[in-house]
Amino acid sequence: MANNIEVKDLLEAGVHFGHLTRKWNPNMAPYIYMERNGIHVINLYKTVAKLEESNEALKKIAASGRKILFVATKKQAKDIVAEKAGKVNMPFITERWPGGMLTNFVTIRKAVKKMATIDRMKKDGTFNTLSKKERLQVDRLRQKLEKNLGSISDMTRLPAALFIVDTMREHIAVKEAQKLNIPIFAMVDTNSDPRPIDFIIPSNDDASKSIEAIMASVTGAIAEGLTERKSEKQADKEGNEEAKPKEAKAPKAPKADTVATEDAAANAKSEE
């Protein structure tokens, strides 16, 4: 895999720093290497193994053409996630998790369609027929929808998976995904419960360097999956074109002069 990451890289990014020992979740014990100065240290060898496992699964999802929804609303993660997810054309939520985002997806889609309706109004001139107060209200609504849902405007159906930074903060997203049996990939710190998560990446989910290192690896795997899908589509297209049977050419109609000559010869022969 081209986006392989080593323990040294994770160490430099501070991925190994956990939370204070008094704040730990005992279910994270298998992923903790040691305790130092009252802070748990994450076992980075296990992080690398889990990261590779997650990357392989995410690569397959991307290669199948399905979407992975990224969720990170904490200050130090939102910009990084928006940038990295945007580069691989995946939807993301970085402002606020809208309640019912997954379990009431139809309503969320209606709100997204409202944005498109407002855009149409501005294009066809209907917007200009509104009063000044109404235009102001519509503009405010459009800005609010864009801020909260603009990044998922292309997501026409439920995502195939969720990638979460900080499962404690995004606990509502975790519950909704569980309810719908949507696989959850997540950066899980020592204070979090790993049990509801399908693909755990034990890591520091508070430091921006740590988040960036994990996100770079994850989105690199997704990019590989998208490239594979593109290559397969191209190969299928070329294969279909080659497999098309060549159309049999219709026999040329004999020229009028030739027909007349042949008729004259036939008449002369019959007279003899």
Score class of each variant (00 low, 15 high):
191 N>Q: 08
181 N>M: 11
186 A>M: 09
200 I>F: 02
204 N>P: 07
191 N>R: 03
183 P>S: 13
181 N>I: 01
206 D>V: 08
196 P>A: 11
194 P>N: 10
200 I>R: 05
207 A>E: 08
182 I>Y: 07
187 M>W: 12
178 Q>Y: 06
202 P>C: 03
189 D>E: 13
188 V>P: 01
178 Q>K: 15
200 I>H: 02
182 I>T: 05
188 V>W: 03
184 I>P: 00
182 I>N: 04
209 K>A: 09
194 P>S: 10
203 S>M: 09
173 A>R: 06
177 A>E: 05
198 D>T: 09
204 N>E: 06
178 Q>E: 14
197 I>G: 00
179 K>S: 13
205 D>E: 11
190 T>I: 09
198 D>E: 09
175 K>S: 12
182 I>P: 04
189 D>I: 07
180 L>G: 02
177 A>W: 04
195 R>V: 14
199 F>V: 01
186 A>T: 07
204 N>H: 09
178 Q>S: 14
208 S>H: 11
195 R>S: 10
181 N>P: 01
185 F>N: 04
184 I>S: 01
191 N>H: 12
175 K>E: 14
209 K>L: 13
179 K>W: 09
189 D>R: 02
194 P>F: 12
186 A>Y: 07
174 V>P: 03
176 E>A: 08
195 R>G: 02
197 I>M: 06
181 N>Q: 15
182 I>F: 11
181 N>F: 13
190 T>V: 08
181 N>C: 04
188 V>N: 05
185 F>M: 10
199 F>R: 03
174 V>W: 03
189 D>H: 08
192 S>Y: 02
191 N>L: 07
175 K>Q: 14
187 M>L: 13
192 S>C: 15
175 K>M: 12
189 D>P: 01
198 D>H: 15
185 F>C: 04
188 V>F: 05
193 D>S: 11
182 I>Q: 07
205 D>P: 01
200 I>D: 00
185 F>E: 03
198 D>A: 11
191 N>P: 05
182 I>D: 06
198 D>K: 12
176 E>H: 10
205 D>S: 12
174 V>I: 13
208 S>Y: 11
203 S>Y: 04
